[in-house]
Structure formats: structure tokens, C-alpha cells
């Protein structure tokens, strides 16, 4: 509670005039100073033209550097075919037993033991968009077998709106299949099949290239014969 002398103090202070307290006080001078300060507008900050050019140049350089690096990386991956010393160079995948193997950027070769047929398996960048697990792919159009494959159009699978891979009607009981599941990116699963229509022993069923690292893949042998998985070419 305020004391009496405090009330008196407040009253006196409220009634006081500035001229009584500071006789020489000049309102006009002080107002003039304040008015000048109030009228001073902040100048908008304009960067010199060269700074925009410099920023653009930096952006272009960054893009160029990024693209160059990406291209180099791709080239590097394509060239690496040497067996990594720490990885086993041969694995036998028994029928119906999925086997996980670790590879490093090199080409994975899956051989069908009974037929002594080499199957070169690479993961192609173009197939990165494939989400449809268990999709059956056959690339007869790139094999030595010029025979026109019979195409079941109802099973066409799109990789993009413009690119379609023909799927051959296969007698499934005789089908050899290699399922490659990239467990680092589980939505990428490929099933490369070879049916009667692609009977050439030297036929390359599929070429894919690993563009993503590290590679841990599951090789699942869905066919009747064991498979031999080799690393490197």
C-alpha cells in the first residue's frame, strides 16, 4: 500500500512541468532531431549486378560438377568388372533356397550349372522404376535367336509410358528363374526368366548393371537346377 508521502510524491511529479525542472529545454530542437530521424527511410538493399552473375555462375558450376561426377561414377561402375578380393567368387544356389550375397559394383554372373549356360545379370538403371515385384522379363529381341517370340500382350509391363517389354508366354513348369532382390532397396526386385523360347545356350537373358552401392542381393533359384553365382566377368 502506498504511503502518504508516496502519494504526495506522485502528485508533485505528475504536476511538474519540464521547464520547471530543466529551464533551458527547447522542444523545437529536440523535435527537429527526432523528425529527421523519423524521415530517414531505410534504403532498400540492392546487390550489384555482378553478384547476380556470380551467383548464376556458381549455380552453373555446381550443376556441371554434379553432372560430371554422376557421369564419372556411371563410367566407373561400368568398367569395374574385377572380382573384389574380399567377396567369394563363387556361390552355388541350391534349388528353392534363396541365398544372400554381398557384391561390390562388379558384374554378377549367374550360371545354370546343368546346362553350362552363362547368364550375365546386371541391374539396368532403366529398371529402377520397376515396382512390380516378380515381373517376368525376357529380352529375346536382343538375343542371337532371331525367332519372333510369341508375345502375350495382356502381360505387358510398363517401365515407362513409352517403353514396354514384351513378355513371352512361358511354360512355367520348365522355367528357370533367377530372382534378384536388392535388399538395400527392397522395392526393387527382378525376376529374370529363361523359358523354352530362349533356348540358346549362349543366350544372354538379361543385362543389368549395378548402379547402386553397396549391393546386397538375394539370389533365389526358382528353377529346377542349382545355379552357380560368380562375381566379376
Amino acid at each position: 500500500m502506498a504511503l502518504d508521502f508516496e502519494k504526495l510524491l506522485k502528485e508533485k511529479m505528475d504536476e511538474a512541468s519540464l521547464n520547471e525542472l530543466i529551464p533551458g529545454w527547447d522542444t523545437e530542437i529536440h523535435w527537429h532531431g527526432l523528425a529527421q530521424k523519423l524521415q530517414t527511410k531505410k534504403k532498400p538493399i540492392f546487390l550489384p549486378a555482378w553478384s547476380y552473375a556470380a551467383a548464376l555462375l556458381v549455380a552453373v558450376l555446381c550443376c556441371w560438377f554434379y553432372l560430371t561426377q554422376s557421369t564419372n561414377e556411371q563410367t566407373k561402375i561400368k568398367k569395374v568388372t574385377v572380382i573384389a578380393p574380399q567377396t567369394p567368387n563363387k556361390i552355388i544356389v541350391e534349388t528353392g533356397k534363396p541365398t544372400m550375397v554381398t557384391v561390390k559394383k562388379e558384374t554378377l554372373i549367374v550360371k545354370e550349372i546343368q546346362r553350362k549356360q552363362s547368364v550375365l545379370v546386371k541391374i539396368n538403371k532403366d529398371y529402377d522404376v520397376v515396382k512390380d515385384t516378380g515381373m517376368v522379363l525376357s529380352l529375346d529381341n536382343i538375343t542371337e535367336n532371331k525367332q519372333e517370340p510369341s508375345v502375350d500382350k495382356s502381360n505387358m509391363h510398363s517401365l515407362s509410358t513409352e517403353q514396354k517389354i514384351p513378355v513371352i508366354a512361358i511354360n512355367k513348369s520348365r522355367q528357370h528363374a533367377v530372382n534378384i532382390l536388392d535388399i538395400e532397396n527392397e522395392d526393387r526386385q527382378f525376376m529374370i526368366s529363361k523359358g523354352p523360347a530362349a533356348g540358346s545356350s549362349s543366350q544372354i537373358l538379361e543385362r543389368m548393371q549395378f548402379l547402386i552401392t553397396p549391393q546386397k542381393v538375394i539370389v533365389a533359384n526358382a528353377g529346377p537346377y542349382p545355379l552357380e553365382v560368380l562375381f566379376g566377368k
Binding site: 511529479m13 519540464l18 525542472l21 530543466i22 529545454w25 522542444t27 527526432l34 523528425a35 523519423l38
Partner: peptide
């Protein structure tokens, strides 16, 4: 931002506010 109005308000309260500051 009318300077005349600003000045009038300033003059009205300048004394009391200066006493407060002191």
C-alpha cells in the same frame, strides 16, 4: 506518417516523458 500530427503528439507528452526518463 503525418509530421504535423507527430509533432503535436510529441509536444503533448514530451514533458511528462522526460520527467519519467529522469
Amino acid at each position: 506518417n503525418n509530421p504535423a500530427a507527430q509533432k503535436l503528439l510529441y509536444k503533448k507528452y514530451e514533458g511528462a516523458m522526460m520527467i519519467l526518463c529522469l
